[in-house]
Computed example of a mutant assay.
Amino acid sequence: MIYVGLTGWGDHPDVYSPGSKKTEKLIDYSAHFPIVELDSSFYAVQPERNIRKWIEETPEAFQFVVKAYQGMTGHQRGENPFESREAMFEAYIRSIRPLKEAGKLAMVLLQFPPWFDCTKENVEQLKEAAGKLHEFDVAVEFRHQSWYAPDLKEKTIDFLTDHNLIHSVCDEPQAGEGSIPFVPIPSRKDKVLVRLHGRNVHGWLNPGNAQKWREVRYLYDYNQQELAEISRAVQSLNKSVDQVYVIFNNNSGGHAAGDAKEFQQMNELEFEGLSSKQMDLFEGGF
């Protein structure tokens, strides 16, 4: 089964019903897509009340791919609010556990930074983080090219398989060691994650100041040929994996929703159990 969704639900105006309130964005979003990547959990461990609100606002079969908190993967910006690494993981686990209990947690995403290269020390750090999250399905996304060097690519996939970790397959600009190639190989038979970051090479290398980097890095609109290429890889994954989660993250210019809808139509995907709050904005648009 192939599932399609976007990164976050708060910045996709094309999916909102006319006159919708800010507090209804997730409800509108879940009328179109069966999954979403929860990225606010990267910036702060979310209060349990937020998690329970999102559970209530989404259909029974709706699934969340939840990004790990930044301090858990070496991205920490500013002061870490937790007194210890143990306390940080405990708070994060308490925060997201209701999603698992509700049957709405697809996986936790450990996305490591571009400087997290393939070294023995970093392998141990990865094992430690994944071990603390053992009660959840955990996906791993690398950003340093060394993990996919010709002599290490197979070992990387084998490592993920041996530790029951989900491979995060990425489509992103090929811009040196701080980016990874598209490697559509699963590490588990039940789940694989495909994250589509766009192919804006200039923006990837020159994202500008810290406040504007997301606006530049993920500014990209996939064309039909590129979506067809990705579709072939996803369909191939779908033959060997039970559930393929496809997340569009190319939203700096608002392209993610339209590209996801085009991908959905291209692959003749229909999703059941969506929110009943429907709108026909995309009908006949492609």
Rank of each mutant, 00 (worst) to 15 (best):
E83R: 15
S84I: 08
R85P: 13
F89K: 08
E90K: 15
E90S: 14
E90I: 09
A91E: 15
A91S: 15
Y92W: 11
Y92M: 02
Y92K: 08
I93L: 03
S95L: 01
I96E: 06
R97K: 15
R97T: 14
R97V: 06
R97S: 14
R97I: 02
P98K: 00
P98G: 00
P98Y: 03
K100E: 15
A102G: 08
G103V: 04
G103S: 12
L105W: 08
L105Q: 09
A106K: 14
M107D: 03
M107R: 02
L110R: 08
F112C: 01
P113V: 10
P113M: 07
P113T: 08
P113W: 00
P113G: 00
P114T: 09
W115F: 15
W115P: 09
W115M: 14
W115E: 13
D117I: 08
C118V: 02
C118G: 04
T119A: 06
K120Y: 12
E121T: 14
E121Y: 12
N122Y: 09
N122W: 00
N122I: 01
N122Q: 10
V123K: 13
V123E: 15
E124N: 14
E124S: 14
Q125N: 13
L126V: 05
L126Y: 06
K127C: 11
E128P: 13
E128G: 07
A129K: 01
A130V: 10
A130S: 13
A130H: 04
G131Y: 05
G131C: 02
K132F: 00
K132G: 02
K132P: 03
H134T: 12
E135Y: 05
E135G: 03
F136I: 09
F136L: 06
D137T: 08
V138D: 10
V138C: 10
V138Y: 06
V138G: 10
V140A: 04
V140R: 02
F142V: 08
R143Y: 11
R143N: 09
R143T: 12
H144C: 01
A149T: 02
P150R: 04
D151P: 00
L152E: 12
L152A: 12
K153V: 12
K153N: 11
K153E: 15
K155I: 08
K155F: 02
T156F: 11
T156Q: 06
I157L: 10
I157S: 01
D158C: 12
D158P: 07
L160W: 02
L160E: 03
D162P: 02
D162G: 11
H163A: 09
H163R: 14
N164V: 11
N164M: 05
L165G: 01
L165A: 04
I166V: 10
H167R: 08
H167V: 00
S168E: 07
V169D: 06
C170V: 15
C170Y: 06
C170M: 15
D171K: 06
D171Q: 08
E172H: 11
Q174H: 10
Q174G: 09
A175E: 09
E177S: 13
G178P: 02
G178H: 12
G178C: 11
P181N: 04
P181S: 05
V183E: 09
P184W: 06
P186H: 09
P186F: 05
P186Y: 07
R188I: 04
R188K: 04
R188V: 07
K189P: 05
D190P: 12
V192I: 11
V192K: 09
